[in-house]
Design a binder for these strands. Structure first.
Length: 426
RNA sequence: GCCGGGGUAGCCAAGCCAGGUAAGGCGCCGGAUUUGAGAUCCGGUGGCCCUUUGGGCCUCAAGGGUUCGAAUCCCUUCCCCGGCGCCA
């Protein structure tokens, strides 16, 4: 979320950003926020004055008792204060809750390079890599390819778990783990520290990472417990340093998480319903960086470069788009999507996503750093990016490496991991 | 899941039984001293608010209660350690 002190000083800036996002209803919230903040500060001061008075009388009583003097008079005087404090405190808390609620629902400030636009159609392509493969036959989509080779079972998955679930089978399971291991080796060489995080998180750490609407739209809740299924290891890696003040000389902290990801995919009915493109669970290797504010934009470029390098090594053509203001999401200040070419669909589709969240997650999660002892702490910046989301990569490999006979060549860099050069050879 | 012991500042800890200004040590930062380093000495070392060379409030795992006053007493929850149980 935004820093209250920042909004206090720069309300016009915050409003202008909301207009750029096309989020006009929230513009008025900024004025409301300032009003609540004013009242909150006024009552906080009053409460503190009362506390001061109480503390003084209390100390007086302690002193008199030590001298064995009568305290009934003072005690009577003191008895009246706590009730007043309690009443005021309640109001202070109410204001604070309202303020926090507004802050939690205001989106991040965007970087100036974010294109203004309404939806994904306004995203701006900034570069392409790779030759779009030419086939001397009509390329199949990943569903036909996988079903023909008996590499997935979607019907039985639907019967036992529902739509958007799948059984991966045989060599596709091997390929899946080959990609994960390949990615882990890659990111280890880049000196990222590996983490396999908890696959469930409590509400509080999650609130530090995501927009509140995500709790309804994307995140699965465990019934009867304060636990939520992990939607991405990004959330668990952020939570790792919740409420901590990091030592500035250890920054940046470069982490990589590997985990399954569980998502409700609410509101996507009718889109990408077939196959394993949009599913309720998948595996992902993630990059996550805690850094100083002045380093986050450079870091953002580094993470997308890493994701691109993986696609290049796998030989998968892709393009990078700069996601526009209307499609950006609440927490990111800027986001690149990496879209790989899918011959079966004849278009580029999202395979990875790289966001600079600036201080937005750090403030929500209360993660600071300090350069020198005695200096005031500052909020860190956080950056996250997919390295590989395995199911999306599986689709891309299947479609780009398909052969006329329906078999699939294994990308050369994966052969050491799969032990075979071709999938589905009779 | 049951029984027992715990959670105090960046870290280690005293205080809790018996309510009355959060000891002490380490680390770190700054200063003094020194040719330099070390040793020594002095000061600092979380968050918030205000009329900001200053002042005040909050902070002893979290939340509530009792009290003029709670780290200390009572209740609830979370987490850690040990033992038992269960277990891939």
């Amino acid at each position: 979320m935004l820093d209250l002190k920042f909004v206090r000083k720069n309300p016009a800036l915050v409003k202008a950003d909301l207009i750029k996002r096309g989020d006009l209803t929230k513009v008025k919230w900024v004025d409301d926020l300032l009003e609540y903040d004013k009242n909150w500060r006024k009552l906080t001061l009053e409460t503190n004055k009362l506390r001061e008075m109480r503390n003084k009388i209390t100390a007086e009583i302690a002193r008199l008792k030590k001298e064995n003097k009568d305290v009934t008079e003072k005690t009577k005087e003191a008895k009246e204060i706590p009730l007043k404090i309690k009443r005021l405190e309640q109001k202070v808390q109410d204001y604070r809750k309202t303020i926090n609620h507004i802050l939690l629902n205001l989106p991040n400030l965007m970087h100036e390079s974010v294109p203004v636009g309404k939806d994904e159609n306004d995203n701006v392509e900034i570069r392409r890599w790779g030759e779009i493969p030419k086939f001397d036959f009509k390329p199949k989509d990943h569903i036909d390819l996988a079903l023909n080779l008996d590499l997935v079972d979607l019907e039985r998955a639907a019967r036992v778990a529902g739509a958007r679930f799948y059984y991966l089978k045989g060599e596709l399971v091997q390929l899946n783990y080959a990609i994960i291991k390949f990615a882990l080796d890659f990111i280890t060489r880049k000196e990222f520290a590996l983490f396999q995080p908890p696959y469930m998180l409590k509400r509080k750490p999650l609130e530090g990472a995501v927009a509140l609407s995500d709790f309804e739209d994307t995140i699965y809740k465990i019934e009867g417990e304060d636990l939520y299924m992990l939607a991405t290891s990004e959330h668990a890696l952020l939570a790792l340093h919740m409420d901590e003040t990091l030592d500035g000389k250890n920054l940046p902290l470069r982490y990589s998480g590997v985990s399954p990801c569980f998502r409700k995919e609410a509101g996507t009915h009718g889109r990408d319903t077939k196959g394993i493109f949009r599913v309720h669970q998948f595996e992902k290797v993630e990059q996550f960086v805690f850094c100083k504010p002045e380093d986050s934009w450079k870091g953002h470029e580094e993470l997308i470069t890493n994701a691109e390098e993986i696609s290049q090594k796998l030989g998968l053509p892709y393009r990078i788009v700069n996601v526009c203001s209307g499609d950006l999401g609440t927490v990111a200040a800027k986001k690149y999507d990496l879209e790989t070419w899918l011959p079966g669909q004849g278009k580029y589709r999202e395979a990875a996503s790289c966001s600079n969240c600036t201080s937005y997650q750090a403030i929500r999660s209360n993660i600071r750093y300090r350069d020198k002892s005695g200096e005031p702490s500052k909020f860190v910046h956080t950056i996250n990016s997919t390295l590989v989301a395995t199911e999306r990569v599986l689709i891309s490999v299947l479609e780009n490496y398909q052969q006329r006979d329906g078999s699939i060549l294994v990308p050369p860099v994966l052969v050491p991991y799969t032990g075979v050069e071709k999938i589905g050879q009779k």
